[in-house]
């Protein structure tokens, strides 16, 4: 799976892109692979407010739950509602159709401090495979 060059990445395996002040958030193929079989995505309510490091949503697999953290302060502008019924795009296309949410950021500094692709792939080499 090729990871997009224009996205930024977090140590906890979220990816984000920024268009103006709207941040699109998802999780990487690495996160999906290590969660295992995904059975449910618990998306946040549109209009809710988040701060950096807040749990933005939860991804449930058979044996584990993965938390997705918001990298910026802002308000949920949209969520990928289809995932609530069918989480398979998360597995098939985590950087495209498997996007999780769009956050209208009031402060984008959290985005700027994320890793670029090269730094993230270096991070993966040392990441805990568990």
């Amino acid at each position: 799976m090729s990871r997009p060059q224009d996205a930024r990445y977090s140590e906890s395996h979220e990816w984000a892109t920024l268009d103006g002040d709207v941040l699109t958030l998802g999780v990487t193929d690495f996160a999906i692979e290590h969660l295992g079989d995904i059975v449910f995505v618990d998306l946040p309510d549109v209009g809710s407010d988040l701060g950096p490091g807040d749990t933005a949503c939860e991804i449930e697999s058979v044996k584990a739950v993965g938390e997705v953290y918001a990298p910026v302060t802002g308000t949920i502008e949209a969520v990928n509602e289809g995932l609530a019924d069918d989480p398979s795009p998360l597995v098939a296309d985590p950087f495209g159709a498997g996007w999780l949410m769009k956050i209208k950021a009031s402060d984008t500094s959290g985005f700027e401090s994320l890793m670029d692709l090269a730094a993230y792939e270096k991070h993966l080499e040392t990441a805990d495979p568990g």
Binding site: G36, D37, V39, S61, V62, K63
Partner: peptide, 11 residues
Amino acid sequence: PVQYGSALEEV
């Protein structure tokens, strides 16, 4: 071994 492939399939 916790799983070979998919835990769902193994169930």
